[in-house]
């Protein structure tokens, strides 16, 4: 309940944060909302020697309309994302997933950037962003670059962020009109991480699936897109039969964990059920 001692720096700007990361090297950790890092530090499962507090960089807390996409600053709190009319209008899936994180107190503090940088495959927003093909904007020593969500999550709690990189924003494409979505989170208690979560987008053209995107939470070492389900759906009628057939592909390419709440076998079975339900809910 008491973290190991560390040095504390306050970043005055994004550039300053990058500079501090450069000065302190691998032992430094960025502190935003702190809701991924501090729980680990309290149990001394993480013990960074330096914390660089970026919580004061208020210019990174915003949700704005940027034409074909909505841009979310990395320090935007989950509660603000969950409540955003702009997101609800253009990409409700992201707001929904943010509203599924933790509990109200957690959502008041946890940031979207912190959630993504943590790279937890059991977390809800990363899968939602992966499913909508979001782009992540990263500031590093070499300047700014963008990383597609599909290339961001590299392994269990690992991401494409380098030791001196700072995630600054997320670009969420606006969904085409008529695109249905759903996020199905299966858990035992409302505050728990997903045993399995499924994010689904279904874009229809006259009763036919024009494009489907399906993402899986907690089914592998990273958030996962379900290519098998997506390809099985393309061009098929948006029908219960087609969804059920496609959902049978959900376990393909997964590598689910086993823990005290669910075995890998159960997660595998759930993934198909929840994919089917997510697809049905997306077009309902």
């Amino acid at each position: 309940m008491i973290p190991a001692a560390f040095d504390y720096e306050v970043a005055e700007s994004t550039d300053h944060a990058v500079q501090l990361l450069g000065e302190h090297g691998d032992d430094a950790k960025l502190l935003a909302g702190g809701h991924s890092l501090l729980p680990l530090m309290k149990l001394r499962l993480a013990r960074p020697s330096v914390l660089i507090d970026i919580g004061g960089l208020s210019d990174l807390a915003y949700i704005k309309d940027a034409g074909d996409h909505v841009e979310i600053g990395a320090l935007t709190r989950m509660c603000d994302i969950a409540a955003s009319d702009l997101l609800r209008r253009h990409c409700g899936l992201i707001a929904e997933a943010a509203g599924q994180v933790g509990d109200p107190q957690v959502r008041h503090r946890a940031t979207i950037g912190g959630s993504l940088a943590h790279g937890d495959p059991a977390s809800d927003p990363p899968v939602a962003l992966l499913t909508v093909d979001a782009e992540l904007v990263v500031r590093g020593p070499g300047g700014e670059r963008t990383v597609p969500a599909s290339g961001f999550f590299t392994n269990f709690f690992e991401t494409a962020l380098g030791p001196q990189d700072l995630l600054t924003s997320v670009r969420v494409p606006k969904l085409a009109a008529g695109t249905g979505w759903s996020y199905q989170k299966f858990h035992r208690r409302a505050i728990d991480w997903a045993i399995v979560g499924v994010a689904a987008l279904v874009e229809r053209d006259d009763g036919t699936v024009k494009r489907a995107a399906v993402g899986l939470t907690n089914m592998a070492t990273t958030p996962l897109r379900s290519a098998g389900v997506e390809s099985a759906l393309a061009g098929r009628p948006a029908s219960a039969e087609a969804f059920a057939e496609a959902a049978a592909h959900a376990p393909e390419g997964t590598n689910p964990p086993s823990d005290t709440n669910a075995s890998a076998e159960y997660r595998t079975a759930l993934s198909s059920i929840l994919v089917r339900r997510a697809l049905e809910a997306a077009v309902a």
């Binding site: 035992r188 208690r189 409302a190 728990d192 823990d259 005290t260």
Partner: peptide, 16 residues
């Protein structure tokens, strides 16, 4: 003890 904290020893909340 694998259920060694409130994160997975499942004491329910009001919503459950």
């Amino acid at each position: 003890l694998l259920t060694a904290s409130l994160t997975n020893y499942e004491v329910p909340a009001a919503s459950d």
